[in-house]
C-alpha cells in the first residue's frame, strides 16, 4: 500500500515538473497571442532552438579545462538567454512587423513555416544524431520519507515557480509590464497615451523566446535532445486552451494539470497496454474535451463579451 502511494507521489511530482515546462511554453504562447493576436505555432520550435543553443554552449564550455561543471552550465544558460533576446527581436522583425494587421491565415502560415524552417535548419547544424544533454544534477535523487524525487525535477519546479513570480512582479508592478497588458487590451489607446507600441511588441517576442529557451533548457535533460522535440510544444497549445486561452494564470494552471495527468496516466495505463504508444495522451485529450464541454472558455478563461 505505501509502495503504491510512494509510486504515485513520485509520478505526481514528476508530472508537476513536466507540467511546469508545458506551462512555460504555454506562457510564451499566451503572451504573444494576447499582445499581438498572433497564434505562434512555432513556440515548440523556439523551445527546441533554445535547448540546442544551450547544449552547444555547454558542450563547448565543458571542454574548457579551468571551468568546473556548474559554472559551465551557468555561463551556458546566460549565453542561451542572450541568444534568445537577439533571436526574439529578429522574429519580431521578420514575422510580427510585416504581418501586423494582415489576415490571420497569413500569420498562421508564417508561424507554421517558421516551425518547419527552424526544425530543418537545426537538423542541418546539429546533425542526425539524437543528443544526450548533460545535466548539472546527473541522475541524483532526493529522498523524502521513502519517496525518491529526482533533483532535476525539483530544480525544474523551483525554477518555474521563481520565473512565474518574476513575471507576476513584472506584469503588475513595473511600468513596462503594465504597458504590455495595456497594449494587449487596447493598442489604439496605448498609442494615444504615448506607449511605444512597436517596442512593446518587440519585447513580447523577446520575452516569449526567453521563456521558451528556459523551458527547453529545463526539458532537454529529461527527454533527449532532437529536432523533433518541438512537437512537445503542440501540447502547450491544449494546455493554454485548458487553462483558458489568453489567460496568463490559465496557461500555468493548464500546463501543470496536463503534465500531472500525462505522467500519472502513463505510469498506470502503459503498464496494462504497453503496445499503445500514445496511451498517456488519451487521458489528456479526454480531460481537455470534458473541461471544454463544461467550461468552453477554459478553467480560468472568461468568455469574450463584445463591448459596444
Amino acid at each position: 500500500m505505501t509502495e503504491t502511494f510512494g509510486g504515485l507521489t513520485q509520478e505526481v511530482v514528476s508530472g508537476i515538473a513536466l507540467g511546469c515546462i508545458y506551462a512555460l511554453i504555454a506562457l510564451g504562447f499566451t503572451l504573444i497571442y494576447k499582445a499581438t493576436e498572433v497564434v505562434n505555432f512555432a513556440q515548440g520550435e523556439l523551445m527546441m532552438v533554445g535547448a540546442y543553443v544551450n547544449f552547444f554552449f555547454v558542450s563547448a564550455l565543458l571542454e574548457v579545462p579551468l571551468l568546473n561543471g556548474v559554472w559551465a552550465f551557468i555561463i551556458a544558460l546566460v549565453g542561451a538567454v542572450a541568444f534568445a533576446v537577439l533571436f526574439g527581436a529578429f522574429l519580431d522583425l521578420i514575422i510580427n512587423r510585416p504581418l501586423k494587421d494582415e489576415p490571420v491565415f497569413s500569420v498562421i502560415m508564417a508561424t507554421i513555416s517558421l516551425a518547419i524552417i527552424l526544425r530543418a535548419v537545426m537538423a542541418v547544424i546539429a546533425g542526425p544524431m539524437t543528443r544526450i544533454p548533460p545535466s548539472p544534477f546527473g541522475s541524483s535523487v532526493i529522498t523524502f520519507g521513502g519517496v525518491a524525487i529526482s533533483t532535476l525535477d525539483m530544480f525544474i519546479i523551483l525554477s518555474a515557480v521563481v520565473l512565474v513570480m518574476v513575471f507576476y512582479f513584472f506584469f503588475n508592478r513595473t511600468k513596462w509590464g503594465i504597458a504590455m497588458k495595456a497594449t494587449s487590451e487596447d493598442p489604439m489607446a496605448a498609442h494615444l497615451v504615448g506607449i511605444p507600441v512597436k517596442k512593446v511588441y518587440r519585447n513580447v517576442w523577446i520575452f516569449s523566446m526567453v521563456v521558451a529557451t528556459i523551458g527547453g533548457v529545463l526539458l532537454a535533460p529529461r527527454t533527449l535532445l532532437d529536432t523533433h522535440m518541438g512537437f512537445l510544444g503542440l501540447k502547450a497549445f491544449p494546455a493554454a486552451v485548458l487553462g483558458g486561452f489568453g489567460s496568463i494564470p490559465g496557461a500555468i494552471v493548464g500546463g501543470v494539470i496536463m503534465g500531472v495527468i500525462e505522467t500519472v496516466s502513463m505510469g498506470t495505463l502503459s503498464f496494462h497496454f504497453p503496445w499503445v504508444k500514445e496511451i498517456n495522451d488519451i487521458i489528456v485529450w479526454i480531460v481537455l474535451i470534458a473541461v471544454l464541454m463544461i467550461r468552453p472558455a477554459g478553467i480560468l478563461g472568461h468568455e469574450e463579451v463584445d463591448r459596444v
Binding site: I178, A179, K181, E185, D186, A189
Partner: peptide, 18 residues
C-alpha cells in the same frame, strides 16, 4: 477607450508613461 482590465491607478500611470 480606457484599459478595462487595468485598475484606475494603473490607467493613470499609463497616461504618464512618458
Amino acid at each position: 477607450h480606457i484599459f478595462p482590465e487595468l485598475t484606475v491607478y494603473e490607467n493613470l500611470i499609463m497616461g504618464g508613461f512618458l
